[in-house]
């Protein structure tokens, strides 16, 4: 049996700096997988490698049984991998609804002439996108915000809107880059529930980068730990918590 996403020996060098060294992982369909590590460990670089933003110096990425190494982001998105960004990248001038509809653009089947001439197909596509976007906004608890420009949304809602937009591309796997960053404890609780529902109700596999240990440990079924670009541990939360190298590298020296 093969995994949904399989990275093998991914290495990324920027000049003399090796940001990620021989990163391998296998994420099964339906998993909640966590990727953690101290600042500068190379987590976001891994995301950029997986989603095609960077082309790896060496190594391969296999997604849903096909090799996607070095493919550009739109191709990878079309294959069913979507993501959010650590530093939120919304389409600020568009409304929340339009942001999500933009994510739905990928699965549309109309051509430019349908749009220019406002054919029936165009109307059906607009309706499909709008209905799907409203559904996802409601799923994320943002239906009240649909008409607001993304730039006017409060911080927590901006994070959630990015997730809704990523879900609109109908992904098999969603990569969340620190979705709880900057949220207060109660917001984090709500977010954890949402992420679980993304997996359980929408049947989307989740790959999560997160700094909040409590959130990751409570949510993820398997966790991989990076430090200085190298994998130092991989396993169930309980195993990670008691791993001596993780405690040393990530949490500092135990009971100093």
């Amino acid at each position: 049996m093969s995994a949904l996403l399989q990275a093998e020996q991914l290495t990324m060098r920027f000049g003399g700096l090796t940001a990620v060294k021989e990163f391998s992982c296998a994420i099964e369909s339906g998993e909640l997988f966590g990727l953690i590590g101290p600042n500068g460990a190379g987590k976001t670089t891994v995301f950029n490698l997986l989603t095609g933003v960077y082309r790896p110096s060496s190594g391969t990425v296999t997604f849903a049984q096909s090799d996607i190494t070095g493919q550009p982001p739109p191709v990878i998105a079309a294959r069913g991998m979507s993501r959010t960004f650590q530093n939120i990248r919304l389409f600020d001038e568009l409304s929340a609804l339009e942001n999500v509809m933009a994510g739905a653009h990928l699965r549309g089947h109309i051509n430019l002439f349908d749009a220019l001439l406002r054919t029936g197909r165009n109307a059906r596509e607009e309706k499909r996108q709008r209905d799907w976007a409203y559904k996802l906004l409601a799923f994320m608890g943002l239906e009240e915000r649909a008409g607001l420009a993304a730039k006017h949304l409060p911080y927590g809602d901006r994070r959630k809107l990015e997730i809704a937009r990523a879900l609109a591309t109908e992904p098999k796997l969603i990569c969340l880059d620190e979705p709880a960053a900057g949220m207060n404890p109660s917001e984090k609780q709500g977010l954890a529930q949402l992420i679980r529902r993304i997996r359980d109700q929408l049947h989307v596999t989740v790959l999560l980068i997160e700094h909040d240990m409590q959130l990751v440990m409570g949510l993820c079924e398997r966790i991989q730990v990076l430090d200085h670009g190298e994998t130092i541990a991989c396993g169930k939360p309980r195993e990670i918590q008691s791993d001596a190298r993780v405690i040393e590298a990530y949490l500092g020296v135990a009971d100093a």
């Binding site: 933003v53 990878i76 389409f91 509809m101 653009h105 430019l112």
Partner: peptide
Amino acid sequence: STFGRALICVRENELAAETMGVR
């Protein structure tokens, strides 16, 4: 239309547009 939004996405944030599947 969806193409108009896609154009605006490219303007607003090209990287995000690309990862959302907008060429």
